[in-house]
Write a protein that binds this DNA or RNA. Structure first.
Lengths: 335, 335
DNA sequence: GTTAGCACTGTGCCCGCCCGAGTGCCAGGG
DNA sequence: CCCTGGCACTCGGGCGGGCACAGTGCTAAC
């Protein structure tokens, strides 16, 4: 497939179909684009494109619509992602700059992206690899109960109450606290459980039960903090997209609610030279997203941000928005 | 409206319409329910019910469907909320018992309720009134930066890095920490900012700038922790409900995404003697939820849990599920 | 390789038709 | 006074025919 005009025609078909949401015929094509040839020639080319499986005709005699493969070659055809307009960039900047904590950043980002693309936006929380323990606090609550708080460098503080077999003296508590701190501060979250097991093993009997209980709690908190999470926004946009053509809303909503599935999907997507990854229709395996498209990219060390929408989406703009948002996100979280 | 048989007929109409999803006529009614009268009599009663605005006929000659007001009297007619079945109760218990932290509890609860009711579930985070400060930690990060962590009794730990004008000595840091702790521990979140202002005012000059900076941060964290949040699940259930009749999915999704609106709506709903609150159709003011129904109840001190679905929903079961989940939630969070 | 022209085909739409469900009402009977 | 059987009426939905239209594929000519 290296016939320039046919590629141009494919491109025109995708654009018009995205725009007008109905099958596009040869005549409309020559009217709306300066192709420099007649509709008959376009028809011949369209027949060739159909032969190659890039477009298809819903009924014997109506215009053509792109196939999954057609969208794919269209997307591959896009050389460079166009940058966002100045006002858009400023809006992003302003919105994200005065976010308070990490939750706020995620929340704002996902809403922003949903609004920018008019699709469903998904943002993964920053990846825990590379996240280390900043601090651990052990607070006595009296009557044999202590509160342990784990503060990792990514801001996802976690806390839990531990009930001890027997109350601790204040000095014992301080020693325990010091031992835990020495064992885990600065370590990556994934290394915490092992480090604590070692610490517990090396603790003298009087303090050992308490150390074991606290150690287990901290380990669990670290494991929880390393687990991936995501936020989502713009599901209402699906209703609009779904309204007129193809793409039933139910399966997509189900897929989006299955965070585990979405997170795996996102992490599988390898972005290309342009810095974005696109999955179209059946490229998402068989399943609820086989009528949808996903545009995603990474930010920070290895986290992802993306949008989910109908295959009939404005790929250039969506790719631009996703990439721009990811860059701002990297910058905010990096600083 | 105190005609027993007419009430019985209204009830039958609601049940059948919920069940079969199509207008119900007089003949079908006498076939499916033991009313003890003929269809002609039922017709007369239906005419009366229509006169009172409780039911309506979509077309001149098809069965009747309940109006908002019809659903309302149906719901008011339900004397007691029926308890859940044993297995259901056990499932709830098991699922919620091994939740790790507060986020996990919320997440599990909302998913559970969505699955139980086959609707969209909404759970508000525990209300902050009554929540006090359990602990505050101030950790030196070096180079004039300190990390402050606020641990409230409701588990919503928050943390922030504060950049100081000048680095602190360790002894200064300890003193600052002690002063902050003394000022706020045990106070309710809403009282924290004022208490800190007082503390800052009473601090000697050398430590004052640092105290002001840290105080401000803790105050902001407390304010953030007092703010309401919610989680949501089961939006895919909307697609099913929406599929066949009335209720367009778009507006409802939009409303659900506007957390502020939803939270206000929930807090406005006053539960009645049976321990649940129901809002039907236009009772939700004009707006996106005017074709939907909300069933909610409170848990804990003053937080809410509820579901949103089509007016044509199984109210008895939904009310039972919402109330049961709220009770388990109260118990889990109380203990 | 491109173009003009033409026959062809399937869709959507409108129209008219009939059928059936369900109603409202009336007159008769407990 | 309330209930019932009966009957005429009405509308919605499904079905089939006819029409207009959009867009195709093909062929012959340039």
């Amino acid at each position: 497939m290296n016939h320039p005009r046919r590629l141009q025609i494919l491109q025109a078909i995708v654009e018009d179909y995205v725009h007008f949401r109905e099958p596009v015929g040869s005549k409309a094509l020559v009217d709306r684009h300066r192709l420099g040839v007649s509709s008959a020639t376009v028809r011949n080319d369209m027949a060739a494109l159909e032969e190659e499986g890039l477009i298809t005709a819903p009924h014997t005699s109506s215009g053509r619509i792109p196939t999954d493969k057609g969208y794919r070659t269209f997307v591959d055809q896009i050389a460079a992602v166009k940058p966002l307009s100045g006002p858009e960039r400023r809006a992003i900047q302003r919105l994200l700059d005065d976010a308070a904590d990490i939750d706020d950043v995620m929340e704002r980002t996902v809403r922003l992206l949903a609004q920018l693309t008019q699709q469903v936006a998904v943002v993964q929380y920053p990846h825990a690899s590379g996240v280390t323990v900043r601090h651990v606090e052990v607070v006595d609550l009296g009557v044999g109960r202590v509160l342990v708080v784990l503060i990792p460098t990514n801001g996802r503080v976690a806390q839990r109450v531990v009930v001890l077999r027997a109350p601790l003296e204040e000095s014992q508590l301080l020693e325990l606290r010091a031992r835990v701190l020495a064992a885990v501060v600065g370590r990556s979250l994934t290394a915490v459980p092992d480090a604590l097991a070692l610490m517990v093993a090396g603790t003298a009997p009087p303090l050992q039960p308490a150390a074991a209980a606290v150690g287990e709690a901290v380990g669990a908190l670290a494991a929880g903090g390393a687990e991936h999470r995501m936020v989502m926004a713009g599901t209402a946009n699906l209703a609009r997209a779904t309204g007129d053509f193809h793409l039933s809303i139910g399966p997509v909503l189900e897929a989006l609610e299955e965070q585990v599935v979405m997170l795996r999907l996102l992490s599988e997507m390898e972005q290309d030279a342009r810095g974005v990854a696109v999955r179209i229709g059946t490229e998402n395996a068989e399943g609820p997203l086989s009528e949808a498209a996903v545009v995603a990219t990474g930010y920070g060390p290895q986290s992802k941000v993306g949008v989910v929408g109908p295959m009939r989406m404005d790929y250039p703009s969506t790719m631009a928005a996703v990439r721009a948002v990811a860059r701002y996100l990297s910058r905010i979280l990096g600083g």
